[in-house]
Design a protein around this nucleic acid. Sequence first.
DNA 1: GTTAGCCTCCTCCCTTGGTAGGAGGCGCCG
DNA 2: CGGCGCCTCCTACCAAGGGAGGAGGCTAAC
Lengths: 214, 214
Amino acid sequence: MYRLLVADDHPLFREAMVAVIARGLSGSETLEAASLAAALEVVAQHDDLDLALLDLGLPDAEGLSGLAQLRQAVPWLPVVIVSAEQHKHTILEALNLGAVGYIPKSTPRDTLLVALQQILAGQVYLPPDIMRTGSPPASPTAPLKHHPLTSLTDKQREVLAHMVKGESNKMIAYRLDIAETTVKTHVSAILRKLRVSSRVQAILLASERDDGIR
Amino acid sequence: MYRLLVADDHPLFREAMVAVIARGLSGSETLEAASLAAALEVVAQHDDLDLALLDLGLPDAEGLSGLAQLRQAVPWLPVVIVSAEQHKHTILEALNLGAVGYIPKSTPRDTLLVALQQILAGQVYLPPDIMRTGSPPASPTAPLKHHPLTSLTDKQREVLAHMVKGESNKMIAYRLDIAETTVKTHVSAILRKLRVSSRVQAILLASERDDGIR
DNA sequence: GTTAGCCTCCTCCCTTGGTAGGAGGCGCCG
DNA sequence: CGGCGCCTCCTACCAAGGGAGGAGGCTAAC
């Protein structure tokens, strides 16, 4: 059903997680990585993954830098943080880096399964105490789902439409009669909202489901 | 501005043609060839040509076989026939072989210039009397646009396949286990052969007809 | 043997793309 | 009214893309 990557340096914890997945998400496939380097290698060779579970305690990744690297390498892959740490600041920072959820290691099995299903369904999962503090930074659930394009503003969609045609920032600026710096601003916003890291990826994503575009 | 090849075995005519180009398309560069062999040699060493003007009376080419050979060698290069002959059958056959135009040697200078500009702009030019006879055979521009991908080398196609997936030069280098500078070399060659000026355009072109890719 | 094409890699240089951060104007809504 | 989101534009800075040119190695063809 799903293909997941479990990145954790503790073999025991990894196995436990895999077991939970195997039982709760029957038919799913799990890959494992004991380090960030291994995880990067795995995702490099599997572009059909649905979700990555990333531990924050990996030996070769300083805290959230691992998340940043993973997001950088494969922006299309949803990543959920699995960590013993539960500081609010860390959690919010992870979300800012594009994580789609944050699962404390203390989470009981049943809850864990619910969290995974929720995330695989396109929702964001956060520990209850964070959820209670009201809406986090900017994007709880809606923008992630099927229509990331709908979260774009009119102008951003307009710029994206020109990007899709293969035009450069300069040309778009000329066509829309705005400054190139303004185009850059829009492009940056588009990349952030679409959760990608280059204009090419944005274009591929947009033309894939160009429902909302032109 | 443009880089043209004039292939004709009459020095006088060649010079006249070059003069017309120099005056009408300022900034353009012209290369000359007195035989088909010479022309093939020139195009083999210059993959940045924009257009070739091919005379049908070359000593080492029997009629349209010269066009066939040239098209075979460098499918990405638009070729316009320049000939004294004006038989309808010959003209249609030339178009079938992928020529982008047919200019009678009797064409006055002004008209000649218009024809060249029209062709360089991506149009097809035919002598007025042929144009009047309605639609050309079956393929005005088709054969030209269909083949560019086939002119790529294996490695270039491989690189292009990764570009299409939205990967950066660095990532492609990693995947193919070659240096990033090498990837850049390939990308440059691809852009030149596909006659586009940015990777985005190359990707759009390739994914449009990704028949040969992947 | 020599030649030609391809792949590989390099350096130098410039353009483009993208981020960060700030700023002013405008319109909408509580 | 004040606040908020959006559009606009800016500076400054860094990363990535791309061109020009050269160079070595390799294989296939002549």
